[in-house]
Design a protein around this nucleic acid. Structure first.
Lengths: 143, 143
DNA sequence: TCAATAGTTGGAATAAGTCTAAAGAGTGGT
DNA sequence: ACCACTCTTTAGACTTATTCCAACTATTGA
């Protein structure tokens, strides 16, 4: 692990946690690093499995707790697709999600031109745009 | 109930059910009428409560079965918002959903100008756009 | 350093939805 | 009209994802 990079990451993390009124703990750092390291939108359970490799005593409740704290500090965000388990995403840029029905992978899509003409008086605080379909790889393989 | 109107509705319903390979049953008609009558995106449980008023013996499992059948026949659609219970919507026009954080009501929003520039090769089969915020009424009351 | 407070743990509890087996209802052939 | 066949409903058990709880542990400010 690059010490310089890690320090930067945990500085940001700790500062954000503190601002949100949360303490910095080893578990929260671990969970955040997992989401930073592999940006494949894992579920809470997948995060738990990965966290266990480094921290065998961590519990599921703690993983949920850490994820909640990170969401509240705007360090990660939730991704919901239909009724499946909630997924977590460390990409805080404005973006939409694309789920490939064939390979099951998630893709982040930049919304270059989304403009929605809302009727007057509606104030939007949160938008979620998600799509399903086939990704370029799977689409090509299917031909 | 207006007999003319009712006949039209149940004709469409029965035809669609038949096309989907489903039989027309009193329970399915009841559930469909509930969703037609009050377009407030009820949850399965809310549908169950409303159905019970007319049909006291109906069970929750039947409500789920009926909703499933109607979804498969493209007569209604699912609406998911975060982790809450699935909601059902009889508006089959292409539209987005707006949830008011203050009054908890759902609004259908016509997507007049949504264009998303997807990277090449992505084939979309299903899109879901949902928003949260405050509706005109609640926004006005808050001032 | 030490109390006060926040966080973690493992297991129990909950909510929403799905599955199953048995009983009930509708339909075509005789 | 009767029977067999199939589809549907029912009640309740089960599953999955998540939250709650009480006891223990770690972190922080004085």
């Amino acid at each position: 692990m690059k010490p310089g990079c890690q320090t930067t990451t945990s500085n940001t993390l700790n500062a954000r946690l503190a601002t949100g009124g949360f303490r910095s703990t080893a578990q929260r750092q671990q969970v955040y690093e997992i989401l930073q390291a592999q940006r494949d939108h894992p579920t809470a359970e997948e995060v738990f499995i990965r966290a266990k490799r480094e921290m065998p005593d961590i519990s599921m409740a703690t993983v949920y707790n850490c994820l909640d704290a990170l969401v509240k500090c705007h360090l990660i965000r939730l991704v919901n697709l239909d009724r499946g388990a909630t997924r977590y995403c460390a990409n805080m840029e404005d973006h939409a999600h694309f789920y490939c029905n064939l390979c099951g992978r998630f893709f982040d899509i930049e919304p270059q031109a989304v403009t929605l003409a809302l009727p007057e008086g509606f104030q939007v605080t949160h938008t979620e745009l998600s799509m399903r379909g086939s990704c370029p790889e799977c689409g090509a393989n299917h031909k």
